[in-house]
Design a protein around this nucleic acid. Structure first.
Lengths: 149, 149
DNA sequence: TCCTTTTCTTGAACGAGTCAAGTGTTTGCA
DNA sequence: TGCAAACACTTGACTCGTTCAAGAAAAGGA
């Protein structure tokens, strides 16, 4: 867990002004990976009870554009944020409860980076989302299926 | 391009009631791949001027659940639909204009289907989204960069 | 410390999508 | 073909994540 001083340095290193809301947002994203905006607002208000939701939205956008956090948004979900940036990891999303887990890509490094036919597009990122059931929902689903049988 | 009769058969084959809105929605999705809901509503109203948006939403849900259409939703986009189902193709999304193109997966069949560490999840689908610039935006972007230099 | 620029607060607004109640259609069956 | 039940559609209101806008506050360089 990084310290406040480190968060401030991260902001300065990204040429962003150091403000209390931004430090708190950056800290919250580090502390709660894959949290949605509302959860981040709650976490931030643990430190700064009076921050506006707009400040959090603005901070998240600034941090995302600066590359300090990464925004992910699986289909049907609200925006979520994580602090693990710069590597090529992907996500596993539970269809039942929406839980998100990290996953390193199967074949090592950027396996899907090149489409077989890119249609003339210049591709800069390949995003992989695995869909399935988390361990808890998987168990629940199996037992409910058993009950039906 | 499939005929109305074929669309009706597709609906019946999926155990769905055959209604004019559903046939029109299915037809519209076939005619306009990657269209968003509003575009589909417009297309449907070319045939049936009085359909409600709710009917289109309901139809799209029914068709999606029946597997006759596929719903895609890249981060930051509204829901889009396509009729190409049953294969393992992915999508290329233009960061600038939002255009979506189809892409067959790089290494043939389901290359990313297995995460190296699935965290105990039972995975049933791997969705790949390539991000980049479409040919038109790529050209525009290059020339504007040149102007800046 | 002062000034400029950026960021935050406040409060309203937007828009894709959903909910709910009632009406209209489709379909299976007599 | 006609009927009944189930399902789908219309209408209209509503939710909620997110954005917009104007003015107040704060950060950082001079």
């Amino acid at each position: 867990m990084a310290t406040t001083v480190e968060f401030r340095q991260m902001l300065r290193g990204a040429a962003l002004r150091v403000t209390r809301p931004r430090v708190a947002v950056l800290s919250a994203v580090h502390a709660h990976p894959h949290a949605d905006t509302e959860s981040i607002i709650s976490a931030v208000r643990g430190d700064l009870p009076k921050v506006s939701h707009q400040a959090v939205y603005d901070s998240l956008r600034a941090l995302t554009e600066a590359g300090l956090v990464r925004r992910i948004q699986p289909a049907g979900s609200v925006a979520r944020y994580e602090a693990r940036v710069g590597d090529n990891h992907h996500h596993i999303v539970c269809r039942s409860c929406g839980t998100i887990a990290d996953a390193d890509c199967a074949t090592g490094e950027a396996p899907c980076m090149t489409a077989s036919d890119d249609g003339g597009f210049s591709i800069d990122e390949a995003e992989v989302i695995y869909w399935g059931l988390c361990p808890a929902c998987s168990t629940a689903h199996r037992s409910s299926s058993a009950n039906l049988a």
